[in-house]
Design a protein around this nucleic acid. Sequence first.
DNA 1: ATGCCTGCAAAAGATTTGCACGTCG
DNA 2: CGACGTGCAAATCTTTTGCAGGCAT
Lengths: 147, 147
Amino acid sequence: MKAEAAERRFVRFLKSKKQRVTRQRLEVLRLSWETHEHFTAEGMLTWARKLDQTVSRATVYRSLALLVEGGFLSVLERGKESSLYEHSLGHAHHDHMVCLSCETIIEFQCEAIEELQRLEAKKRSFNLVDHSLTLEGYCSQCKNPAR
Amino acid sequence: MKAEAAERRFVRFLKSKKQRVTRQRLEVLRLSWETHEHFTAEGMLTWARKLDQTVSRATVYRSLALLVEGGFLSVLERGKESSLYEHSLGHAHHDHMVCLSCETIIEFQCEAIEELQRLEAKKRSFNLVDHSLTLEGYCSQCKNPAR
DNA sequence: ATGCCTGCAAAAGATTTGCACGTCG
DNA sequence: CGACGTGCAAATCTTTTGCAGGCAT
């Protein structure tokens, strides 16, 4: 999805929730569309501050949460490490492989896995909303069988 | 695996790492074998303190990390929420479905998914060490399509 | 002996919250 | 206007760490 489309959709999303369209919220949305990398809340704060000295950390967190709720961003939780965000609408869904050595993130898609997940959920009358799958190991660069 | 077997294996594990077999470490191991539920570090601390007033939080965390490293426990990371542990050796590997409403955790196994993960990893020359798959949604009790 | 462990308390790090003020609708 | 959003700083919460003394080997 293009940035402008995302923006229009975000405005609609906010209105539907009776929330206000503010400069800060739009800014976070726009910035998240400007990279194709994963980013942290702190990273977003740094970018936002380049445009507007006064944006606060709290607002960045609050906006990111809103964007996730609306499905504009998806989150990759990393235990105690800070979460990584990426814009998601219009991106095909994918999962991640994370290198335990160099931290590189490889994205992959596998429809067969998704299908099996839906099947397992259905078996248990579980109303599947979302899922997160992360494979941990060593990328081809690091191939480090030690641990 | 029985508790005694786990204990023997843990002692061997510690010795192999030239680490000491201490009362606190054994206690954490034993307690983790006494429940078949998932537990938090804080929960473990509470249990341990019933037996020994002086066990410290730091030691519980350090022991849990050791047990995870040795493969005695597995962890379910929950974003900002505290991690959940469960004894794993001798338990077949499984993944989790977490109810967004009542927090119930349903365990499931699917060898076909595991196989596909190995396949995807191999495709990318990724040396797979571990993985975590969590399905989020609503359990049959809560079936709450809203969100 | 002696070096790994432990308890304690303080530190860390990410994220959240309370509050007074600003601003969108 | 009036409610909702924002910035700021302080608070939270989980987990980690530094250090002095204790205990396993």
